[in-house]
Simulated scan of single mutants.
Amino acid sequence: MNIQSALQEAMAIDGALGVAVVDYESGMALGFLGGGQHLDLEVAAAGNTEVVRAKLRALATLAIDDVIEDILITLGTQYHLIRPLGRSQSSLFLYLALDRSRGNLALARHALKGIEAGLEL
């Protein structure tokens, strides 16, 4: 599936508030859906780029030879899921903001994993 189809599928996840495909090297969103007045996805994409970079630096500093599967940020009313794409040489990640009262974290993680597997770049 292409990026637009992947974004549409992610927005179909129960509780989805917004989703983006982001390049953590540049901080640019390749595409996004959802968001709104209280969730600026372009700003969130750039901010979460720093989160991914910081975690990658921490892994390197600790000499942990592994890959990031998910990064989860829990807020009072939202979950923010960051899922780096597992392809070699890829600097992209999926970012999903989820309403805690309507979403299911386990199902959202499972759905993002499936979207990642089907995404063709």
Score class of each variant (00 low, 15 high):
T74Q: 14
G103A: 07
M1G: 14
V21N: 00
L75G: 14
L39Q: 08
Y95Q: 12
G35P: 10
E25F: 01
R100Y: 02
S88M: 13
L30M: 14
L96C: 11
D14W: 00
Q8D: 13
A108Q: 01
L112M: 09
I64P: 01
G27Q: 04
G35N: 12
A106F: 07
M11S: 02
A46E: 02
L96N: 09
M1W: 03
M11E: 05
L33A: 07
A12M: 11
T61A: 11
V21D: 00
E9D: 06
D99W: 05
G31T: 05
I3Q: 05
E42T: 11
Q8M: 08
G86M: 07
G27Y: 05
P84V: 06
L107G: 00
H38K: 06
S101H: 03
A45C: 10
T49K: 14
Y79K: 05
R109A: 07
A111D: 13
L30V: 03
E50M: 12
A117M: 12
G103Y: 02
S88L: 15
V21M: 13
T77C: 00
A106G: 15
V19W: 04
L105E: 03
S88T: 14
H110T: 05
S5M: 08
I71Q: 07
G86P: 02
E69R: 13
L41N: 08
T77Y: 01
L98G: 05
G34V: 06
L92H: 14
H80S: 01
I71L: 14
V51R: 04
L105S: 02
G86H: 10
G36V: 05
A117F: 10
L30W: 13
K113W: 00
D99T: 04
A60P: 00
N2H: 04
G118Q: 13
E42F: 02
E69D: 15
G76E: 15
E116I: 02
M28V: 13
R102H: 05
K113G: 12
V52Q: 04
G31R: 08
L96T: 11
N48P: 01
L94G: 04
S101E: 08
R57M: 09
T61N: 09
N48I: 03
G86T: 02
I115H: 09
L7W: 03
Y79S: 03
N48S: 11
K55Y: 06
L119H: 10
V19I: 14
L39N: 05
F32L: 11
I13D: 07
E69I: 02
G47L: 15
G27A: 08
I68L: 15
M1R: 06
L98D: 01
S91G: 05
E116R: 07
Q8F: 07
L81F: 09
L107R: 08
N2G: 14
V51M: 12
A58I: 06
A63P: 00
S91T: 15
H38F: 06
I68W: 07
G114N: 08
I13V: 13
A111S: 15
G103I: 04
G27F: 06
A54L: 12
L75F: 10
A12R: 13
L98I: 03
S88C: 08
